[in-house]
C-alpha cells in the first residue's frame, strides 16, 4: 500500500527518506517550485495562502491550497472554486468554525485538507473541536472529500499512515473512508491538475 503526503512544509533529504520508509510515494511540498523525483519519491509543488489573489498568480503546475483560519476567510467563498484546488483548515479553524461555515465549505465542492498534527496538539489541550466534529459529520456521510496529512517540517512530525488512519477512525470515519483520505482523494486532485500519477 502506498500513500500520498499532501502537505510538507519544508523539504530535506532526511525527511524524504523517512517519508519513503513510511510508504509515502508522492509528496506535495510548499518548499518546491518544480515537479521532481527524488529517491523514487515524486515531489509536486504547492502554494498555500489565505489570500485568493496570491493563488491566482501561482504557477500552473502547483497545487493551490486556500487556507482558512476563521469564518472571515470564507467571505468570498463562491469565487474560491475558480482559484483554489483544495481548502486547508488550520487548527484555529478546527476549533472555531461553526456549522454554517462548514456548510459553506461543503457547498464549495472542493476537497478539504486537515492536518493530523494540529488535531493531536489541540486534543492535548483538551479543547472542544467544534469545526472538526462538524466537518467529520459531512465526511462520514461522504458529502465532502477529505484529505489528511501530517504537515511535517521536521522528521519528528512525520506520522506513519497507519497511525493517521487510526486517528481518523477514532474520529468517526470508517476504515475505507480513512484510507481514501490518504490515497484516492489526493490522487484525484493531482490528476485534476494534470499530473499522471498513480499508486500501485
Amino acid at each position: 500500500m502506498k500513500y500520498v503526503e499532501f502537505h510538507v512544509r519544508k523539504l530535506s533529504e532526511e525527511l524524504v527518506e523517512l517519508l519513503k520508509k513510511f510508504k509515502y510515494h508522492i509528496i506535495v511540498c510548499d518548499d518546491v517550485k518544480k515537479y521532481d523525483i527524488l529517491n523514487d519519491v515524486t515531489i509536486i509543488p504547492r502554494v498555500t495562502s489565505s489570500n485568493a489573489n496570491e493563488l491566482k498568480t501561482a504557477p500552473r503546475n502547483a497545487i493551490r491550497a486556500y487556507m482558512v483560519k476563521s469564518k472571515e476567510d470564507l467571505k468570498n467563498y463562491p469565487k474560491l472554486k475558480r482559484v483554489a484546488n483544495i481548502v486547508t483548515l488550520t487548527d484555529e479553524a478546527l476549533i472555531r468554525l461553526g456549522p454554517k461555515s462548514i456548510e459553506k465549505i461543503v457547498n464549495l465542492g472542493l476537497p478539504v485538507e486537515i492536518c493530523v498534527n494540529d488535531i493531536i496538539r489541540v486534543l492535548e489541550k483538551s479543547r472542544y473541536l467544534k469545526g472538526l466534529y462538524n466537518l467529520m459529520r459531512y465526511a462520514a456521510s461522504n458529502s465532502i472529500d477529505l484529505i489528511v496529512s501530517s504537515c511535517p517540517t521536521k522528521n519528528l512530525d512525520v506520522l506513519h499512515p497507519i497511525l493517521v488512519r487510526s486517528i481518523l477512525e477514532e474520529l468517526g470515519l470508517s476504515s475505507i473512508q480513512a484510507k481514501k483520505a490518504l490515497t484516492q482523494t489526493p490522487i484525484k486532485v493531482l490528476r485534476g491538475i494534470g499530473y499522471n500519477v498513480y499508486l500501485e
Binding site: 493531536i120 492535548e124 506520522l159 497511525l163 487510526s166 486517528i167 477514532e170
Partner: peptide
C-alpha cells in the same frame, strides 16, 4: 482497541 493503541503511539511520538 487497535485504533486506540495506534492513536496513543501517535501522541507518544508528538510528545
Amino acid at each position: 482497541y487497535r485504533t486506540k493503541v495506534l492513536m496513543t503511539l501517535a501522541l507518544l511520538q508528538v510528545k
